[in-house]
Design a protein around this nucleic acid. Structure first.
Lengths: 207, 207
DNA sequence: CGGTTTTTGAGAATGTGAGCACTAATTTTA
DNA sequence: TAAAATTAGTGCTCACATTCTCAAAAACCG
């Protein structure tokens, strides 16, 4: 099974593993068995072993997995071994939430620029990031920023996406509920809060 | 294929269809073919037909699907035919973003209560919702609130979840990156922004 | 040093969803 | 009224993901 393509579903789980492993690493743990990690994360142990086996032998039978080694490898697969700079577009409630969110750091993300169309917000400093006018998006190229987050209200999303692509961004996290069309090279992940909430009642038991 | 269990993946797509159909309905369209809807949403037409066929015959060959009828049915399946009241816990940046988010309305959600542990915020009014102290969570039962959104920083999530369950909530949307353990009856959907961002670089082309 | 325990890794079996092609039904057009 | 065009519905196949099982490997213990 070694050296074959990693299934998409497994890639989706890698950040979960990474978060858990980073936590354990902070606790100065050196190694962990798939069973212990499974209990810790609430995932089946054989799923963890299978996922890890997609990218090589890392475990030692009788001992478990070397945490540091595994962290390094997962980071490399997810291309998180180098830090990534992120540009935020839209500094409304959601945008400010993104700027203040501490969770990006453990994955090596740095929200390094923020843009807003409202001239009144230009120059304002939020969480040590100066808000620039949206027309300055072209400047990104100099800053080695390769990811963009769209947090603008609805219908401006496509326009912003076009600008981000033009500025050389390689991936976009889109919080707007609108479909965004970009060149095939660019990966877009859309998070629509309302849509996720909308699936919740379906699973609710009435009793 | 009629009357069988709807696959989870199809359920996940229903809110997408619903959004599109509601939009078309506002444009006073009466019916639409699977092909047109597919083009509009950026999804394959046979996937749409297959998904719709899981819950009965709604289309007319040669014409397409009756939009209003379909909306009604999808809403019923997702249990959105009745409005749902939602309680928000945590009124930090993310919480305020949730309160201000206009996208919930089309699915019939109403964020009717907000709670925060910080006494300084009690009584404050955000988007016409009065922030109450977190100790008042028990009151929810009277308000027919059946969904909860957790938007508190990290480690308090489990505690809040317990309180929500105790207050009779049936489903939880969790924005914290921590695992939450609840009775099996309760459905939890977790959105971890950082984790979604973390899988973005994997798909990036370096050229 | 040999047996026991722990734990990985991989193969097999099962289940699920996506993609495709074809059929049948309805409307439109000639 | 008949033929053509449009479009839904469904059966089939393939790929993928999950689950289970088991043998091999390493460590531990007596």
């Amino acid at each position: 099974m070694r050296y074959c393509k990693i299934p998409d579903e497994a890639v989706r789980r890698l950040p979960i593993y990474l978060r858990g492993l980073l936590f354990l690493s902070e606790q100065s743990k050196k190694s962990i068995s798939s069973q212990s990690l499974a209990d810790f994360l609430g995932i089946n142990s054989w799923l963890i072993r299978k996922d890890f086996s997609y990218f090589g032998d890392f475990g030692t039978p009788g001992v478990g997995y070397n945490i540091e080694k595994l962290i390094k490898h997962i980071k490399k697969i997810l291309k998180l071994h180098v830090g990534h700079k992120v540009a935020l577009v839209g500094t409304g409630n959601l945008g400010r939430a993104v700027l203040a969110y501490p969770g990006f750091r453990i994955y090596g993300f740095d929200v390094a620029a923020a843009f807003d169309s409202d001239p009144k917000k230009n120059g304002r400093k939020i969480n040590n990031v100066v808000v620039e006018n949206i027309s300055k998006l072209g400047r990104l190229k100099k800053g080695k920023i390769d990811l963009g987050i769209i947090a603008v209200p609805g219908d401006a999303a496509q326009e912003i996406a076009d600008a981000l692509v033009k500025a050389g961004i390689k991936g976009i996290l889109n919080f707007s509920p609108y479909r965004i069309i970009v060149p095939k090279k660019i990966k877009v992940i859309t998070i629509d809060i309302a849509m996720d909430l909308a699936r919740l009642p379906y699973y609710m038991r009435s009793n």
